[in-house]
Amino acid sequence: MTISGVALLALCTLLGQVLGELLGVQLGVKANVGGVGIAMILLIAARVWLTDRKLWTAGVNQGVMLWASLYIPIVIAMAAQQDVAAAVSGGPMVLIGGICVVCLCFAMVALIGRMSGRSETMDEIEARERLASITEQADTA
């Protein structure tokens, strides 16, 4: 059933948010600490657990994937409700600050990436996985 996937996703998200809020209270912070991240870990754990018991059905998968595939449209709607007018009219300090801090962070990403050595790119991962599945099929045939 598709709804079971949607429901599972909703439960993980809600539980993650609650745990994130609790973590915030524990730390004495007026914010949700990692609620979405915790929810993602819960969903990954739930998928592993259900797959092991052959309960991760096509319907459940469809319910989760429906929302994963709506992700980009939702991000576009999110972009359309940012306070861009305020950001632009904030004056020089706001603009300089916002732009320079991004440049600084980009440089750090490049630096950390270089220091920790080369990593397999997404294209290479997919190519390798495709190859593996082809050899696997050939083996079984």
Binding site: A39, L43, V75, A79
Partner: peptide, 29 residues
């Protein structure tokens, strides 16, 4: 932004924190 225009208020719900987080969590799969 756009969601302050009454007929386009749906952008506020679609792009709001609730559905955004919901869809991000879904990508964890």
């Amino acid at each position: 932004g756009l969601s302050d225009i009454p007929v386009l208020s749906g952008f506020g719900l679609m792009g709001g924190a609730m559905l955004r987080d919901f869809a991000i969590v879904a990508t964890a799969c």
